[in-house]
Design a protein around this nucleic acid. Structure first.
Length: 754
RNA sequence: GGACGCUUAGCUCAGUUGGUUAGAGCACUGCGUUUACAUCGCAGGUGUCGGGGGUUCGAAUCCCUCAGCGUCCACCA
């Protein structure tokens, strides 16, 4: 044995050994134990946040050694929005945009891009030593996943759980796309705040409203004040005149209004402000669109005179108009506020109403709340049970459509009715010219077949007729829905697409779901939802949530902060075992994980310590067995009388180790992995090596084989206990003792543990 | 504003149902080691266990309160 544990040569050899010996697959024998890997983005590469996957590996390995048929099924996610975002960035660099392609071509290009960039993360997972059955990997765009998603959608339609409605999204009129939360840039900016006077009807005087957006006033139908606002609450029920159109407007009360901002009175523009929209939905107020997809004003009767103008020009026109009417009380030029802008072009985003598909969750969430409350699903750490329940209470209907191509298309076709204008399209012709408009108008200038070939986007009014079908219906003219499902709609069915049909009897519910706490509500809750809906069972018995990985200073790692650590560097320098162990050592349950090089180095030293304990035992054995080099020769050797003190020491060791083992089993079964590892570290280094081995060194030099046997057996048991945490070094030492063809993965804990 | 959590050594953090002298890693100091390991060993800590109050024979641990920090949610017209 070398003086030092050489991780860089040993680790790859051991991993391919496991692969070649089929040790990564679930053994046929044993009670099933199943863990599903949270699918990383297909084009992702390893970052510190993936560190928590080690938890899953520890569980899988522990159960393997415990005699279970433990199985870890990996997979990859297509990660709709995020991947398309990355791809479009690439297009921008090439001087192109997604609008240069029809929908089908764009999808195929992204598919190729993802395919070319996938696979790296699995290579990196292998370097971490993951005991996963790679042959069973599932991709969220595999046909069987798509089939399952379609089937679920159809069933939900049949059960009346799906409906179409308007939904307010953040839309960039320049880039022609709605943006997800992660693509929005919040910036702070100074804008004028206009104080506009609304003449009271039947009363003398005005009600003044402060706003940064005067341009859609013509579409407003209501003002609102806080019902608890002493100054303004008497306005509730009164009527004012719309300063642009002269129409009558009601003043209503809503707690949402902040009495301390501006004048304490707000105007409601439900079609173009998310908060006003919420109020309007709640109170059933009319939602009148004043701005279209292209960022132009809609005022068909044009009493405002701004119909067809762009937002900025319209604002100037409206302000001038109000000024002429002497309805502007004042303009506060330096209003500091936060606005949302497009990550690509930097322009202001326009909150717009876009028709969406929704899932009704009121009935679906009841069994989830029950399952969480009654601990059918157990949360580690416990605090997430509360967080989950809190979120489930406020969980509202789920908008599942996304205006992107990278995903599973919602299997719906809209029936074209040439007499009713319910569908708008964007398409690209053979000359690469983009056309946008109502389908009926477009059909006047182009054949339906040509439009469909160049189709980019369809926006159908909620009242448009549709047929749910994967294939195009034959009875008339149809145009497909172009929206795709929210990524979580497909990944939420992960437990239902990863197992084989016959495994549902034996491996479902699965045993543990270890994932980041960030996606508790996005992902974990949806998996439970789908599983209870489709299988009437929870998808997993335990949820292990890792809160976050932080840098040395305790700050959360994020790209924007630039403090992201690439774990591969640590693995290269200190070994996978050291990296894994550093994520566990000295960590409270569910606490922040601080990743620091000092700690990784300390764990590398521990791996080396293990190696050298093995080396010490091995060397002494060789020395003792010079006559009969085989271990089987032990019994044939003459026996030695131990001095009383040494016998006592051995007894102490056995007692202490037996206590440790009991504690270990208890903590491992309760998923308290970190504590187990801390205990092992303390025992192996500071008790076993520093104390017992040192105490027994002299008698060993007198060739006492009995002592060596006890030390070796104890140490080998320690290797088994440590193996889930540090798989490589423990396997390497195991093979030194038992031969290169043996594997610690074939050992079983119950043989060695009382 | 709402919910939850955290505050223990210079730094990062363990500390289980309350129970002897509160621990580890890192860092620091001294000594040691010609054969398991210098990626080592031994030794070195005056810690108001965030402040205050309470329960108890006994509190880092349970309760109340105050302060600071963090996470999630809501909100910023």
């Amino acid at each position: 044995m070398n003086k030092r544990f050489d991780h860089s040569t040993v680790e790859p050899l051991i991993y391919s050994f496991w692969e070649n010996k089929n040790l990564l697959k679930a053994p046929n024998a044993g009670k099933p134990y199943t863990v599903l890997m949270p699918p990383p983005n297909a084009n992702a590469s390893l970052h510190a946040g993936h560190g928590m996957y080690v938890i899953d590996d520890i569980a899988v390995r522990y159960k393997r050694l415990g005699g279970f048929s433990s199985l870890w099924i990996p997979g990859m996610d297509h990660a709709g929005f995020e991947t398309q975002y990355v791809y479009e960035k690439k297009l921008t660099k090439e001087g192109k945009s997604r609008l240069n392609f029809d929908r089908k071509t764009l999808y195929e290009n992204i598919f190729k891009f993802v395919k070319d960039n996938s696979g790296l993360i699995y290579q990196q997972f292998k370097r971490l030593g993951f005991l996963a059955d790679w042959d069973r990997s599932v991709f969220t765009l595999d046909q069987k996943v798509i089939d399952r998603v379609y089937e679920t959608f159809k069933r939900m339609i049949g059960d009346g759980l799906v409906y179409r409605d308007e939904y307010i999204v953040n839309y960039c009129v320049h880039c022609g796309t709605s943006l997800a939360e992660l693509e929005i840039k919040h910036i702070e900016r100074v804008d004028p705040l206009y104080f506009i006077k609304y003449p009271l009807i039947k009363d003398i005087g005005f009600v003044t409203v402060a706003t940064v957006r005067p341009e859609p006033i013509f579409a407003d139908t209501h003002l609102a004040v806080n019902p608890h606002d002493k100054k303004n609450k008497q306005l509730i029920g009164k009527k004012v005149e719309n300063p642009i159109t002269g129409d009558t407007m009601d003043i209503i009360g809503d707690e949402y209004v902040d009495p301390n901002f501006g004048t304490g009175v707000i105007k409601l523009t439900p079609a173009h402000d998310p908060n006003d929209w919420q109020i309007a939905k709640k109170k059933g107020l009319p939602i009148i669109q004043a701005i279209d997809w292209r960022g132009r004003m809609i005022d068909v009767e044009n009493t405002s005179g701004v119909h067809g103008m762009k937002v900025k020009a319209a604002r100037e026109a409206i302000v001038k108009k109000l000024h002429d009417k002497k309805l502007i009380e004042k303009i506060y030029e330096k209003h500091f506020h936060s606005v949302i802008t497009c990550y690509k072009c930097g322009r202001d985003l326009e909150p717009l109403i876009i028709p969406n598909w929704f899932i009704k969750v009121d009935e679906l969430k009841k069994p989830i709340i029950k399952a969480v409350t009654t601990d059918d699903i157990f949360f580690h750490p416990k605090k997430y049970k509360k967080q989950m329940l809190q979120w489930l209470e406020i969980m509202h209907d789920w908008p599942i459509s996304r205006q992107i191509v990278w995903g599973i298309r919602i299997p719906v076709w809209y029936k074209i009715d040439r007499n009713h204008d319910t569908i708008a399209v964007r398409w690209i012709d053979k000359q690469a010219k983009t056309h946008t408009g109502s389908l009926i108008t477009e059909l006047a200038g182009a054949d339906l077949r040509i439009i469909k070939e160049g189709l980019q986007e369809v926006v159908a009014a909620p009242r448009a007729n549709y047929v749910v079908s994967v294939e195009e219906p034959k009875d008339g003219e149809y145009i497909p829905e172009t929206d795709t499902f929210d990524t979580w709609f497909s990944s939420g069915q992960w437990p239902l697409v990863t197992l084989k049909e016959d495994e549902f009897k034996t491996r479902f519910p699965t045993d543990m779901m270890g994932t980041l706490a960030d996606i508790l509500k996005f992902w974990v809750s949806r998996m439970v939802l789908f599983s209870l809906y489709l299988k009437n069972e929870v998808p997993f018995k335990n949820v292990y949530l890792w809160s976050m990985i932080a840098d040395k200073t305790g700050a959360k790692m994020s790209k924007s902060k630039g403090n992201v650590v690439n774990p591969i560097n640590f693995i290269d320098t200190y070994g996978a075992d050291a990296f894994r162990a550093s994520l566990l050592f000295g960590i409270g349950e569910g606490g922040t994980v601080v990743l620091s090089e000092d700690k990784v180095r300390a764990m590398r030293n521990f791996a080396n310590k293990l190696w050298n304990i093995g080396r010490f035992i091995d060397m002494n054995e060789t020395a003792t067995l010079q006559v009969t080099p085989l271990r089987q020769g032990f019994e044939g050797q003459g026996s030695y009388k131990l001095q009383v003190t040494h016998k006592k020491t051995l007894k102490e060791l056995e007692k202490e180790f037996s206590d440790l083992k009991k504690k270990y089993i208890k903590n491992m079964d309760n998923l308290k992995f970190s504590r187990c590892f801390d205990d092992l570290y303390e025992f192996v280094w500071h008790r076993f090596a520093d104390y017992y081995v040192e105490e027994l060194k002299d008698p060993i030099k007198n060739s006492s084989k009995e002592i060596l046997t006890v030390l070796e057996e104890t140490f080998k048991s320690c290797l088994l206990l440590l193996h889930p945490f540090m798989p490589f070094v423990t396997e390497a030492i195991w093979q030194e003792f038992n031969g290169q063809a043996s594997s610690i993965l074939n050992e079983r804990l119950n043989k060695n543990i009382v």
